[in-house]
Structures are given as structure tokens and as C-alpha cells.
Nucleic acid binder design. Structure first.
Lengths: 113, 113
DNA sequence: TTGACGCATTCCGATATGGGAATATGATTG
DNA sequence: CAATCATATTCCCATATCGGAATGCGTCAA
């Protein structure tokens, strides 16, 4: 088997930096593709491809507006990620005083040898 | 270019479900490789490979303990992710009343035609 | 030393990627 | 209808993946 598809879930979709930038931009409101492409310095096909991925995982919605297609944010799919990561909050605070102490002890032990 | 390396940052590293499971398990404390492999139903080399990725992005630390290597959680690298995703919190609440409303309006409009 | 154990690495195959270039599609305008 | 604008899709390439199988390597016990 190979790596999971970027479209397999939001975790994979947001692993790509440019897609994160797109999402960030869309917080300001809906935007047409070319707009996004230009603002982020990517090609039009590039933007379209990233938007396709975001659409497939449901992080973005499209609305037809004449010639244009306006993409808008649908952040609901980010919530599970926030919750999963949040499950580690106590560990990036509390716990690591211990670990740092441990590391310092180690260094000191080595110096003493 | 191809897809970014899984080791390029924490976002990529946690895109893989099994690595997420490893991290979750490690909240309970340090564990040797074989332990993890067995508990998660993966092969030993499989576990080793995933742990390597997690180590390279700094989400995990190793400690030699005789024959064994004890892996421990270092969740600090998850904090930036939590913050980035958190930047969308207002959008998965507030904003989507509007969008849902919009969608309902659309449906109604179509029925009326 | 010889085994045995715990882990890491390497080699393989199948697969999916992101980017660039070219092209197709669809709606709008004249 | 023809031309044009806004997007999407397709093709191609270089690259990196995850998984399985086999193997390497360091540590400990007899």
C-alpha cells in the first residue's frame, strides 16, 4: 500500500502548506479561484487542484456565480482535529518539566563521567 | 515535485492514523517498541518506522534501557497545530449558521421553481 | 563464544503525490 | 455563432510513501 490519499480525511488535506494558506485566506470570505491563485503565488491549475482536495474532504464549498466559482470556508471538519490535538494539551505543559529535567540530568551525568 | 515528506513537519507526521494511535498510547507513559507494535496490531518493523518519523519531527523521544528502547511522548510539537486549527474555531460555530441558512434558502428556492 | 532477544534498516512493489504544460469545459459577451 | 474569460482536467515526471520480508546490529544471558 502507499501513502493515504490527501482526500482521505482533513488530517491529510491540511498536511499541505498551500492548502493551509488557502483555508486561512478564506476566513476573510468567499473568493474566486484566480484570486486565490494570484494572492498565494500559485498557478491557476495549482489552486484548482488544491481546492478540489479541500472540497472532497469538506473543508470548502463552492458556489457558482456566473463565470466564477466562489470558494468558501467550511471549517466544521477542523473541529475533530482540534479536539484530537487538544487531547494532548496537558502534555505539552505539565509533563515536560519532567522531561526537561530528565534531559538535564542526563547531560550532567555525562559530564561527570 | 512529489508530496512533502512525512518528516517535514508535525502536520505531515500526524496525517497517518497509526502514528496518531502511537501518540495516543504514549500518553500513558513510555513504552518499548514491541509493546506498541503488539498493542496496535502492527509489525515490529512497522512500528519502528512510524516511530522514526515521529522522532524526526520531535513528537517522540527515545531512551535506551538495556536491550530495549523506551519511546516517550513529546507533545510540544502539537501545540502549533492546535493553535493553527484553533484559529478557525469561530468559523465552525458562528459562521455556519449563516451557511446552513444559505443552503436551506437554496433548497427552498429550488422547490418553489 | 554462542544464542536469543529487541529493534532498526534495507529492499521491494504498488500507489499517490504536487508541479508544469497543455487542453478541455462552461458561462458570458458581442 | 465566435471569441473570451474563469475553471477544471489530463498527462507527464520525479519523488516519497506504507507494508511485507529479510537482514543487520547491539545487548544480555548461559
Amino acid at each position: 500500500m502507499a501513502r493515504a490519499a490527501t482526500t482521505s480525511d482533513a488530517f491529510n488535506a491540511i498536511a499541505e502548506p498551500q492548502r493551509r494558506e488557502i483555508l486561512a485566506l478564506l476566513r476573510a470570505g468567499e473568493r474566486p479561484v484566480t484570486d486565490l491563485a494570484q494572492e498565494l503565488g500559485m498557478s491557476q491549475p495549482g489552486a484548482s487542484k488544491h481546492l478540489r482536495v479541500l472540497r472532497e474532504v469538506g473543508l470548502v464549498r463552492v458556489r457558482e456565480a456566473g463565470k466564477q466559482r466562489l470558494y468558501g470556508l467550511d471549517a466544521r471538519g477542523l473541529r475533530p482535529i482540534h479536539e484530537w490535538v487538544g487531547g494532548f494539551e496537558q502534555f505539552w505543559n505539565e509533563s515536560f518539566d519532567r522531561l526537561d529535567t530528565y534531559v538535564q540530568d542526563l547531560k550532567q551525568t555525562q559530564q561527570e563521567e
